[in-house]
Design a protein around this nucleic acid. Structure first.
Lengths: 272, 272
DNA sequence: CGAAGTTACTTTATGACGTAAGGAGTCGCA
DNA sequence: TGCGACTCCTTACGTCATAAAGTAACTTCG
């Protein structure tokens, strides 16, 4: 987990909400030899690094290199790596859709929201590694939050209950996204596909725990019963990796279960 | 996020499942001057470091220091930090309860499980920062998984559905635990309480976004409506920090919503 | 025109990290 | 007494964020 927002709070909020004093610039002197960087350019480059190579690869050197500068050049525009992370975090949240057609139907609205949010998190998996407590409090994150609340308003539930549902739904989507993201990263880092990994590991597991079925009877029973034979993927379409397919199944099923639970709360409200 | 299990898979599984060759030891020589370390002692010390000071403070140097050795001394017993993490991860999972009284009542069983798991994760918050994809596959983690599956068996649902519920419930509990854990860590690192933090931040927010209520109408309405006046905590009992209280509310409400969703699935099964 | 001031950027340095390499000390057994 | 096995230490390398100080280019002023 990477902690953002460690720097000067006022400076950080200024940068996030773009309330920097516009004057003062070009007051006397002029720029140096180069075309000149900007905080925006740095944030864009940093997002590209994180998207492509993951949070672990996000170093000031890497961002600087992408811009043809040294790491230290960035500190002219960005106070620290922590603040840069804040800016990156809020910048990508601008991608979240804010308009949903069926506001009258809370269920389809929330389903769409969940799918969009999952897709967003898979485009920018490093977002999951930014601490959630003490949130960044940027304008785009708030916009995303406002959208979710608006969709929840359609349920007609109490404000106090809606408040909790925001966290519940977010936890779930983030959890699913995390599983997929980590599986992808593991595959990228090790160069070993999910299938290869699982094949090797289950062989070792058989060596090392020959009594597996006796030690974990419920788990074993469920696995042998509940694992469907997967159909071979249609020719021409890329087979989805094992762990990712599992995670997406969990997402679909779990989302329906949660929405059923919300539905139950709505019904209960009608007939107390 | 910290990735474990990067080392030699066979060695790692051997260590996890304690299938090291027992011979070979003390074959010819004797130990050096010191009483002698062991993998177990190192794992215990490493868990203590991570529990007390967080994952960021878990360095080989720090663990060695706690044992009165240098960082390099650990490498005699543990192949790498990654493997040490595997061992730590599985070792703490031994704390998870495996017996639950009311197996006949799936709802109370799952509720107890969720509370126990939350408490476990809050005792060892660094567990949340170990990657979930490509799991560690140790005996104690499997025991915890088997327990959850056993409780889910009480629902009578299909194996394929139960499979997905494992992930759904886990994501939710982990998400709640993560919020609390991160809030605690932020408070510990910055020395600033949730209340102080929020007070300072909301003042800045008012400066920087005076039109907040207009920009985020749904969110603002929900906040002003759904935030209860919190009663002053009884004298003598420690007031729970703001963010932690919020997270625990989300946990309680969200868990009930999820269990209602499971209940709906059970009813649907009865009357197709 | 030249000096001074301002900014953009680089170089260098510090103390952290994981861990490779190469000892040094101690013991059992020959 | 010497050898091999074993534990543990010192040193070293390349990485990280970032503090401090230096350099180069430009604008403005004298």
């Amino acid at each position: 987990m990477v902690f953002a927002g460690q720097g000067d709070a006022r400076r950080s909020m200024s940068l996030l909400w773009r309330t920097e004093q516009p004057a003062q610039r070009r007051r006397g002197p002029g720029p140096g030899p180069r075309p000149g960087l900007s905080a925006d350019a740095i944030v864009t480059a940093a997002i590209a690094v994180a998207d492509e190579d993951g949070m672990a690869a996000l170093s000031m050197r890497a961002v600087g290199e992408r811009l043809g500068r040294t790491a230290m050049a960035l500190y002219t525009y960005v106070p620290s790596k922590s603040e840069l992370l804040d800016l990156m975090y809020d910048a990508v949240h601008a991608e979240l859709p804010t308009r949903y057609a069926g506001i009258d139907n809370w269920r389809t609205g929330l389903t769409d929201w969940a799918h969009d949010t999952l897709a967003f998190l898979l485009r920018h998996p490093w977002v999951l590694q930014v601490s959630q407590a003490r949130p960044v409090l940027g304008p785009h994150e708030y916009a995303g939050l406002d959208t979710l609340v608006r969709l929840l308003n359609g349920t007609g539930l109490d404000a106090s209950l809606r408040r909790r549902l925001v966290g519940t739904l977010t936890h779930f989507v983030r959890g699913c996204a995390g599983t997929v993201a980590e599986a992808r990263q593991a595959a990228a880092v090790t160069g070993e596909s999910d299938e290869e990994w699982w094949f090797a590991r289950s062989a070792l597991l058989g060596e090392v725990a020959p009594d597996f079925a006796d030690r974990y009877p419920s788990l074993s029973a469920m696995e042998s019963e509940g694992t469907p034979q997967q159909p071979p993927s249609a020719p021409g379409e890329e087979a989805m990796p094992y762990l990712e397919r599992e995670a997406r199944e969990t997402f679909a099923v779990g989302l329906d279960v949660m929405l059923d639970g919300i539905d139950a709360a709505i019904r209960r409200m009608g007939t107390p």
